[in-house]
Structures are given as structure tokens and as C-alpha cells.
């Protein structure tokens, strides 16, 4: 038979990665949304009266974009990394490896599927949260830009971790010692302005800080860092992780023995 269309091969893999998480929506969408809303309820209630980060913005409202970005970070990472490690352990990754799908198409399919999952979870958090809390939308373009940048970065990072890890243990270590601390320390629950100077400087080296800060700028029109810098840093980080992922895929690191 004559060779099929390249675009369709990429699309099939992308669709598979999306369908895979949609088949277990309770675990992949509902649970993370409930988790984010629980954080909102607990921290919002506890701190509402005591903290005002930005003028005229309630603490609960301030919290929502941070929690949305945290959902994006965790879910986009989980989507590509857990799919890959499962396929590796079950051995069914061979079906993709046997096909003419290239490294670039492989990377793009996994990363885009992670974007879909991250954005979906964030949107679900948003739509539930705004039933109870007023939230401005100062710069929608920034919201969209940072949601996509954040989920793409974490999707690509999940790809790298999924290729590297040989066991679930290693993956959860990556998640617990790297992703989770970096996202908590990036200003989900606070503005870095409220931190001691040393921690403020440290935050500037945390790429997740720029994601959350830029995302929050989209809602409130105020940010700790300049939004242009946040975009540049995030793009640079995306480029870096993508190159690492592509080189690993191209060399067949750990997946083409």
C-alpha cells in the first residue's frame, strides 16, 4: 500500500493520548478539579480575612489563578509521563515505535495531548470557582498564552521524565521532589513580594514562578515580574525542555535499546 499521510499519523497518536485520559476522566479530570477546589475552600476560608495580596482583590480570587496553574502543571506532567511509563512497562510502546511516526511527531503528539488535559482541568476549576467568587479577566491573551506555555512545558517535561524513568517509583520521586516543591514555591498561595528578600531572589530562578505570575497578570493586570520577561523565560524553558526531549527521542534513549 502506498505510504499514508504524515499529518494523519501524528493526529492518530495525539488523538490516542487524548482519548486515553478521557477514558478515565474521574481520575484525570474530576479528581484534580476537586483537589484544587478543596485548596481554594480551605486556604480561602482560613486566610480570606487576613491577607490582601493585591489591592481590591480578595484572597480567594487571588488564589484561583494560582490553583489553576498548579492544576495545569501537575496534570500536564502526569499526562505524558504516566502514559509513557505505562506503555513502556506494558510493552505496548512498540506499536508506536514500529510505525513511521518521527521523533518530532511523537514529541508534538504527547505534548499537545498534555496541553489539552492541562487546559481542560484548569477550565473546569475556573468555571466552578467563578460560581462562587468574582474574578476579573484583565488580559485574556495572557491567560491563554500562559496556560498553553505552562501545559506545553510540563507536557514536554513529562515526556522527558517518562522516557527516563524505568519504574513508577522514579516517576513519583520526580513528581514529589521536583514538580511539587517547585510549584508550591512559585507563588501559588502568595505573592513573592511577601517573601524575605533571599526567597524572592530564589523564586526568580524557579521557572514555574513566571508561569504563575504571568497567568495571574492575565486576570488581575498586576504581576510581580514584567509580563514580557515571563513570556521570554517561559518560552526559553519550553525550548530547552523540548530540545532535551527531542534529542532523547532521536537517539532512542531508553526506548530503542
Amino acid at each position: 500500500m502506498k505510504a499514508g499521510s504524515r499529518a494523519y499519523g501524528f493526529y492518530a497518536l495525539f488523538a490516542k493520548e487524548v482519548v486515553r485520559f478521557l477514558k478515565v476522566t474521574v481520575q484525570t479530570v474530576l479528581t484534580p478539579v476537586v483537589t484544587a477546589l478543596l485548596y481554594l475552600l480551605v486556604f480561602g476560608q482560613a486566610l480570606e480575612a487576613h491577607v490582601e495580596v493585591y489591592e481590591g482583590v480578595s484572597y480567594s480570587a487571588f488564589l484561583i489563578p494560582g490553583l489553576m496553574m498548579m492544576s495545569i502543571i501537575q496534570n500536564s506532567f502526569a499526562n505524558s509521563s504516566s502514559s509513557l511509563i505505562q506503555s513502556k512497562m506494558m510493552g505496548n510502546l512498540v506499536f508506536v515505535l514500529l510505525s513511521p511516526i518521527s521523533s518530532l511527531e511523537f514529541y508534538a503528539a504527547f505534548t499537545l495531548a498534555a496541553v489539552v488535559r492541562g487546559v481542560l482541568v484548569a477550565m473546569a476549576v475556573y468555571f466552578v470557582a467563578i460560581l462562587f467568587i468574582d474574578l476579573p479577566l484583565a488580559h485574556p491573551w495572557a491567560i491563554v498564552t500562559f496556560a498553553i506555555l505552562g501545559s506545553a512545558i510540563l507536557g514536554a517535561l513529562g515526556l522527558v521524565a517518562g522516557i527516563w524513568a524505568e519504574k513508577f517509583d522514579q516517576l513519583s520521586a520526580f513528581q514529589n521532589f521536583f514538580i511539587l516543591p517547585l510549584s508550591f514555591l512559585s507563588g501559588v498561595f502568595y505573592s513573592i513580594e511577601s517573601l524575605p528578600a533571599a526567597w524572592q531572589t530564589a523564586s526568580l530562578f524557579n521557572p514555574f514562578f513566571y508561569l504563575i505570575d504571568g497567568f495571574r497578570y492575565g486576570f488581575f493586570g498586576v504581576a510581580d515580574a514584567d509580563v514580557g520577561i515571563s513570556i521570554m523565560v517561559s518560552l526559553g524553558f519550553l525550548l530547552l525542555i523540548s530540545i532535551v526531549a527531542l534529542v532523547m527521542l532521536h537517539k532512542g534513549y531508553k526506548i530503542r535499546g
Binding site: M1, A3, G4, S5, R6, A7, Y8, G9, Y11, A12, L13, A15, K16, V19, R20, K23, S87, M90, G91, N92, V94, F95, V96, L98, S99, P100, I101
Partner: peptide, 28 residues
Amino acid sequence: VVPQELVYDPFFTVREILKLQSGYFGHG
């Protein structure tokens, strides 16, 4: 290639898996 090991993807049915595999080769 028919691999020696009985590998499969437990997320899908026979119909879905064949459609997917055909998709990977660019066929709709």
C-alpha cells in the same frame, strides 16, 4: 512485525486499536 511477547494496550478495544494502528501509518 508481530512481536514475540503478547503485548497490548489495556485502554482499548480491538476495533479501536486497529483503527489507531492504521492511523499511526497515516491511514484513515
